[in-house]
Simulated scan of single mutants.
Amino acid sequence: MRSIQGLLSEVAYLQRSCEYLMQNLLDVETVANNIEYLDPLQESMVETATLQNASAIKGEIDLAARLAEHWKTAIEHAAG
């Protein structure tokens, strides 16, 4: 079934993308854990970067989760 092969190919791609995201998040965590001291300007820069980036990533992840649920529901309905 060509449609199922295409679906599974897309799922595999998205799973690899999630793994890439997880690795990047682990890298951010490693960098943070290796910081020993920040002056007030650096504190502010880290805080700003965290607020901006974490918020954007959370929004995208929440949207992606809702889309995956919608996708699953659509497949379930199509398969009857």
Results as ranks from 00 to 15, higher is better:
R66E: 08
E29C: 09
A56V: 13
S3P: 00
A64I: 09
A56C: 10
M22A: 14
L38R: 04
S55I: 08
E69R: 11
M45L: 15
V46H: 02
L51D: 10
D27I: 00
L8Q: 10
A68P: 00
I4Q: 05
S9T: 15
V31M: 15
C18I: 15
V28W: 11
S17Y: 04
E19P: 00
T48Y: 11
S17M: 10
E36F: 05
R16D: 14
A12C: 01
Q15C: 10
Y13C: 03
N53K: 09
V28F: 11
I57N: 00
D62N: 13
Q23H: 11
T30P: 08
R16P: 01
W71K: 06
Q52I: 11
R16C: 06
Q52E: 07
E69D: 07
L51E: 12
Y20D: 15
R16H: 12
S9R: 11
A12L: 04
S44R: 07
E36Q: 11
W71R: 09
V28A: 12
R2E: 02
T50L: 06
V11K: 05
A56S: 14
L21F: 09
E60R: 08
A54D: 08
C18M: 14
A79L: 12
W71C: 04
S17F: 03
Q52D: 05
M22E: 15
L26I: 01
L41C: 04
Q5F: 03
R66T: 01
M22N: 13
S44K: 06
R16F: 08
L14F: 09
R2T: 03
L14N: 10
V11P: 00
Y13W: 04
G59W: 03
V11L: 11
N24D: 14
A56I: 14
G59R: 09
R16A: 13
E36N: 11
L14V: 12
T48C: 13
A68T: 03
A79E: 09
T48S: 14
A74Y: 03
A65H: 08
G80S: 04
W71Y: 09
I4Y: 05
R66G: 06
